[in-house]
Design a protein around this nucleic acid. Structure first.
Lengths: 198, 198
DNA sequence: GCAGAAACTTGAACGGTTGCACTTATTGAC
DNA sequence: GTCAATAAGTGCAACCGTTCAAGTTTCTGC
């Protein structure tokens, strides 16, 4: 038995059920489209009751974002465990370039990305889910900089950084987009729009 | 008959029905709470069928945001018709201070604001609705500055400015919040976080 | 082994939303 | 004025996401 002994059969079965549901959902959604597949269809394909489905997932949209679980931890870690001497904003820029951009560009994810971006309900759900990390990120930044937990500059920075993926989707060069927006956040719009325009 | 003659009885009745529905909805929501009032309740109080209700409003949440119709036009106008010599960002700051802040602080709106902020579904709907103006605002800014319609600096500015209300709700001094965030947008986080931190 | 917890099932229900077939009121053209 | 066309509104049934209640099966710790 090479596997971890601490995890009992119960937990394993639960995880398997969850996985079966998520797999069934993604399959059906990719084949027929999100809105044309009912939650009952998914449950039937996974061979469980709809009640069980909702015991594992809080809603239909959540079936799609199964795998994006610990993004928040990574986000906070990127700020907290950054290399010495590196600024918070630069750490976030590096994280964005290293984690978000390749993920969004991964050709294996092409169909998945198309599904999400082509379904308004999913796009909005994803963005909202993403934005819910603003509180944690804001706190982490504030703590790193020795400021009040609810410091406005930190809260604003967190929200704006988390808006970047939404800004980047649909643009030809996501990498350049991320770079440019971080430059804007650092230097302000004064530099971009000119002294008269600002 | 002092009223405009061009508007026929049909349109007047339609508007009256719409108003009756919106009034009934707000009354019931304020009294019993958004989630404890069904859309059928609203329809009955307004003395129409639910089918009619949904012919006037695209969804339950929309019943609440009845009056926020031409915000987008005002937003674009604030940029387009700004005083000569005033920068785009400053025009947006002035608009925010003149239009958003007093509205949010209006004591006559207290119960309404409490309803929206106290109901997650309504808060999220409102924010999403708000963000849908990003495209129009971005285009207006770009046109004012003679840039490409999809210029990144303009798109980012639009989204970030529209985030400000969400950032300001729940803070003790909304006016100061708006001022600070605009300063941040203009000067960048470099100035706030220090040269080493940025 | 056994008691109890946890996963799962069945079936029904609720509330938001839409489609359909139908009535009624308003309009514009003649 | 009449009439056909159109738009508003009605009633009803259905679909869908979601939840609840009560019961069954399966695992776990002692």
């Amino acid at each position: 038995m090479p596997d971890s002994p601490t995890v009992g059969r119960r937990e394993r079965k639960k995880a398997a059920t969850r996985q079966a549901i998520a797999d069934a959902a993604l399959e059906l959604f990719l084949e027929h489209g999100f809105e044309r597949v009912s939650v009952r269809d998914v449950a039937e394909r996974a061979d469980v009751s709809t009640t069980t489905l909702f015991a594992h997932f809080p809603g239909k949209e959540a079936l799609v974002f199964d795998r994006e679980a610990d993004v928040e931890a990574e986000l906070v870690a990127a700020v907290r465990d950054r290399p010495e001497g590196l600024g918070v904003v630069e750490a976030l820029r590096a994280h964005a370039l290293a984690s978000w951009v390749p993920l969004a560009a991964d050709p294996r994810r092409e169909r998945f990305t198309a599904l999400v971006n082509g379904t308004p309900a999913l796009r909005e759900y994803g963005e909202r889910m993403w934005m819910r990390h603003a509180g944690a990120l804001s706190s982490a930044i504030a703590e790193e900089l020795g400021r009040d937990e609810d410091d406005l500059a930190c809260a604003a920075l967190a929200r704006f950084v988390l808006e970047i993926p939404a800004l980047a989707t649909g643009r030809h060069d996501p990498r350049a987009t991320v770079e440019t927006v971080f430059d804007l956040l650092i230097n302000g719009w004064r530099s971009q729009l000119g002294p008269d325009a600002g």
